Computed example of a mutant assay.
Amino acid sequence: MKCAIALLTIVMSVSVLHAGAHRPLVKLPLQSSDADTWPSASQAKRANLTEILTLDGPFRTFLTHLQQTNLVEVFQKQAYWTDQGITILVPVDRAFAAIKPSVLSGLSKHQLKNLMLYHSLAKRYELAEFEGLSRSNPVTTLAGGLYTVNVTYDGGTIHVRSRWTDAKIIGSVSVAAPMAVYELDRVLLPDSLFRAQPPVAATADEPTPAPSNEDASAPVSESADPVVPRQYGSAGVADAASSARGAGDRFASYAATAALGAMALVAL
């Protein structure tokens, strides 16, 4: 009898242990001190802003300034550690090249940081959402309340305007949530940093208008004489009429000379 009771006790103990081995584990809530060491699922597979700007376009200058001001991680934290995400407006390299070098080199590191933050919005916006955003002007950037832009949306064309710049979104670099990166054709220059309009040259997409009837793609030779295009304005018409009158006068003179010659022959 004692042996039977002992055997039954052993069997019950094994059964309890076996059942406990399949009990679902309950994950304890993270403590505040562990927040930085336990990445969320979205952080584990998040996009790398440095790689995006390196691989997806001519954005070397913008990326260099982000790295100089330690803003790469700031932008990524805004994207992946908040519920709003981020929109980054990235000027192309030629837009930075159009600015006189002394304009940016004269900025302090803090001012340069604000200039870079000025190119970002504290929410991720799809392109279609810019239409609604345009009705909320002025729009505050991540640089703060003194750094606002005005957005316009006209038939799908999106302009972002600062005090000294009228920039246009010309492409989508990366739109995967929660980060949207768009390409700008100009650098946004706020009056909070520049009291007067900085010197900016025309970018490559703003060619000087070529004369009419002249091939704009043809190279211009410095040694060759300039070609004066034919004018079709009022001056050109006047010149043509004058030439016609001159030809008519010459014809009348020839006719008179011929008539006089014929009369002389008849007289003889």
Rank of each mutant, 00 (worst) to 15 (best):
A241L: 12
T69Q: 13
T37W: 02
Y80C: 05
D56N: 14
L8V: 05
P138H: 11
A35R: 02
A216K: 06
K2D: 15
A267D: 00
V92T: 15
C3H: 11
T9E: 11
Y118C: 13
T157R: 14
V160E: 01
W164H: 15
Y125N: 04
L127D: 03
L66K: 07
T203W: 05
S174M: 11
W81H: 04
A44H: 13
L104H: 08
P198D: 02
L193R: 09
Q31M: 04
T54A: 14
L117K: 14
A44G: 15
R23H: 07
Q197Y: 01
Q78K: 03
A258W: 00
A240K: 08
S13H: 11
G20P: 00
G171K: 11
E129Q: 09
D191H: 06
M116G: 14
T9F: 08
D225N: 11
Y147N: 09
A35G: 01
R46M: 11
K27R: 07
S40E: 04
S136V: 01
A128N: 12
S172A: 12
T148C: 12
P91W: 09
L121G: 05
Q31P: 00
L53G: 01
D185R: 03
W81K: 04
Q231L: 06
D154C: 01
M116N: 14
F75Y: 12
R46Y: 02
S105R: 15
F59K: 06
L188N: 10
R186M: 02
F251W: 01
K2T: 15
T9I: 05
A19E: 03
A202M: 01
M12L: 15
A196E: 13
G261H: 00
R94K: 08
T165I: 03
R46K: 13
R161A: 14
D93W: 07
A97Y: 04
A235E: 05
R94G: 10
A6E: 15
L8G: 07
A128L: 05
E73H: 11
L184P: 08
S174Q: 13
G261F: 00
A235C: 04
A201E: 05
E126F: 09
D56T: 10
G236C: 03
S174W: 09
L30D: 15
A238Y: 02
K168P: 06
L146K: 12
S15Q: 06
K123Y: 11
R250G: 00
S134C: 03
T208W: 01
R23I: 04
Q31V: 03
